[in-house]
């Protein structure tokens, strides 16, 4: 069991720097790009942590997000936003950083949590051991999401369906009909 902690810390520092840049920059495009950089670093981190499924998904989603965000921002408002600091945003981000630090300290300090690298795996032990004989599926993650917990995946598909439908609904040409059409209808 090789030690992967140094690489993880390096990626973590990179992600924190990237996100700070994303919050602090006043140019929308560079914010989008630094967010994407954080996403790619995250994908590499997943690969280190033994989650190739997640790494692939994160990677392709990140590409798509990058395309959509650049497409959405580049021609709209490429000028730097020169406005005053939004105090609310700063306070919220500080609170979240505090929470994250506390969270990280608890996880790594082990107060009440299982040790890092030693998960409880009470339920998932069964998935790992009976996954192959029960579902004939070599990829246990796929076995979990599409067989043991297929109902969740249906929910996930409906989430995507909902949000896409919602986006299409919001992008329709006119929201309300003209008064005369209503009378006619």
């Amino acid at each position: 069991m090789e030690n992967i902690t140094p690489q993880l810390y390096a990626l973590l520092v990179f992600m924190i720097v990237g996100s700070v840049v994303a919050i602090e920059t006043r140019n929308l495009l560079s914010a989008v790009i630094s967010v994407a950089a954080v996403g790619f670093a995250l994908s590499v981190a997943f690969l280190f942590l033994g989650a190739p499924d997640i790494a692939i998904t994160q990677l392709v989603v990140e590409v798509l997000v990058l395309i959509i965000l650049i497409r959405g921002t580049i021609l709209l408002d490429n000028t730097a936003v020169e406005s005053h600091r939004d105090t609310l945003a700063v306070v919220t981000s500080l609170i979240f950083f505090g929470l994250l630090l506390g969270f990280g300290a608890m996880i790594f300090g082990g107060r009440g949590f299982p040790e890092f690298g030693e998960p409880v795996m009470r339920v998932s032990k069964v998935y790992v051991h009976t996954g192959l004989p029960a579902t004939y599926c070599a990829n246990i993650v796929t076995a979990v999401i599409l067989d043991f917990r297929a109902y969740d995946t249906m929910g996930e598909a409906s989430v995507l369906f909902t949000s896409i439908l919602g986006a299409m609904a919001l992008l329709r040409r006119d929201g309300k009909r003209k008064e005369e059409e209503v009378v006619a209808a």
């Binding site: 942590l49 499924d53 997640i54 959509i68 965000l69 959405g72 998935y127 993650v141």
Partner: peptide, 27 residues
């Protein structure tokens, strides 16, 4: 020596949800 597959399934779902919320937000 396998990793725990259940959190991975959760993360996969949450990535998808994030993508969905993002597209709605961009709209």
């Amino acid at each position: 020596r396998f990793v725990d597959p259940l959190p991975q399934a959760m993360v996969l779902t949450s990535i998808v949800i994030g993508l969905g919320v993002l597209s709605l937000m961009v709209a």
